[in-house]
């Protein structure tokens, strides 16, 4: 069963990537994000992370951001879930 973080993260990605309703539901753990989607440049990633902070009620330190967590949907979800569990 998907938890709240999973749903919220899909909604955030829908807004950032301008996806159609339901499109983010097809994202799997290994769906590629940063480095796979040309529109996700550094400004867009900064926006994505800031939006995650707002909607998931977490604080992301700049030195926590690495390529691995941004590479796939699963990586970003694992990061967000760990952040929320620790908050």
């Amino acid at each position: 069963m998907r938890d709240d973080t999973d749903l919220l993260l899909r909604r955030i990605l829908t807004d950032v990537l301008g996806l159609k309703e339901g499109q983010a539901d097809t994202f799997e753990a290994d769906t590629g994000l940063f480095g796979h989607l040309p529109e996700l440049d550094s400004m867009a990633v900064a926006g994505l992370l800031t939006e995650m902070e707002d909607r998931l009620d977490i604080v992301i330190d700049d030195d926590e951001i690495d390529g691995e967590m941004l590479e796939t949907f699963g990586g970003l979800l694992t990061f967000a879930q760990a952040k929320r569990a620790g908050a």
Binding site: I12, L17, G18, G47
Partner: peptide
Amino acid sequence: GGGLWLRAEPG
């Protein structure tokens, strides 16, 4: 809807 300022590309 979602705020268009969040978009990676102008929409």
